[in-house]
Write a protein that binds this DNA or RNA. Structure first.
Lengths: 187, 187
DNA sequence: CCAGTAAGCTGAGGCTGCCTCCGGTTAATA
DNA sequence: TATTAACCGGAGGCAGCCTCAGCTTACTGG
């Protein structure tokens, strides 16, 4: 059904160069990096960029989807980890790192979870579904407070990630996550 | 020492109209509201806005200083509250509401705490000093975990406030703050 | 009341970034 | 090699930021 005919060679070339430069630009300047600059560095007209990626979000989504899918996969693996709470913590920590790759990304992903029409929603949502299982497992094992929802946990992670990004040194997110996490142990 | 000669009448008028319109604009569109629009609505040239407030931050700082000072005052009052932890919680909740007045404000205040050259730094810093006393008091009373610093707490509050702002409904910040707070009780 | 002057005001203009649109180009195909 | 659909480019319109040179005006003291 979704079999698209292959791109023309030049189109594919441009597409890939654009992704490369976008990765560089977002990593360096955050998600607000100039699209015109990306096009320029890719040696391509701005119109070409918009042809391949009609919005900034579409560009980001393409860059991030693989990463998000990997997180979902990782969650699936961790479902068999012997210590449910530790597994959850590990997963969230990894996820926090992932959403910290570009400055300003947390805002986007947090918003994406509330906007079903967003391009990012789908990949985020899939990931969240598996994450929820990790949460439930930790609760059932009696290691996590029963009154915390997966949604809240994810939000707290995003919050920690955000705060970590507004801290001078490195590892701020991990410290905050650990802090919050300790308090969520079942007593 | 800091006795400035009084403003010319027209200047003072413009200054005040600008503040009024800025308040409206920031409340409506968040801290990224257009400065040109603010000037226009105040019936003033853009140059006049920049004369009175050389940066967006300066404008915000003028609008917020009173509010921040009020928070510091409130913290001072709460220092005599019979329940140190509840007092701290109350104070943080109020502070969270204050930093939630304009969309995007949390980011600014969080950054301001790490940038001594910021116009907002001074008022934030003063407030933080009193807040720290509230934290210490709760620790000494054995009601708060001893390994949490005031800086971390403030950061967690900002994080909760940020997350609350990225939640559809109302009161998200309060819910998250409560959640985190419960976990920080001394055991 | 008036003239001199510092303080204040203005908005055009240069810059960057977003996004669209259409005339020109080119890779694929037969 | 000719045809053509797909693709490309970048000018141009828009909005926002900020500065600066030239004009206006509220104050002052005579």
């Amino acid at each position: 059904m979704t079999d698209v005919k292959p791109m023309r060679a030049d189109a594919r070339r441009n597409y890939e160069r654009l992704l490369e430069e976008a990765q560089r630009a977002f990593a360096e300047h955050g998600v607000e990096a100039s699209l015109e600059e990306i096009a320029r560095r890719a040696g391509v007209g701005i119109g070409t960029l918009y042809r391949h990626f009609p919005t900034r979000e579409a560009l980001l989504e393409t860059l991030l989807r693989a990463r998000f899918d990997a997180q979902a996969e990782r969650a699936r693996e961790l479902l068999t980890h012997p210590e449910p709470l530790a597994a959850l913590h590990t997963w969230l920590a990894g996820l926090g790192d992932a959403t910290g790759t570009f400055r300003g990304l947390v805002e986007l992903t947090a918003d994406a979870l509330n906007d079903e029409s967003s391009r990012l929603y789908e990949s985020c949502h899939a990931m969240r579904a598996v994450g929820s299982q990790l949460v439930e497992r930790a609760k059932e094992a009696g290691e996590l407070r029963a009154d915390v929802t997966a949604h809240e946990l994810l939000l707290l992670l995003h919050a920690a990630s955000w705060a970590g990004g507004h801290l001078p040194g490195e590892g701020g997110m991990q410290r905050l996550l650990a802090l919050v996490f300790e308090g969520l142990r079942a007593s």
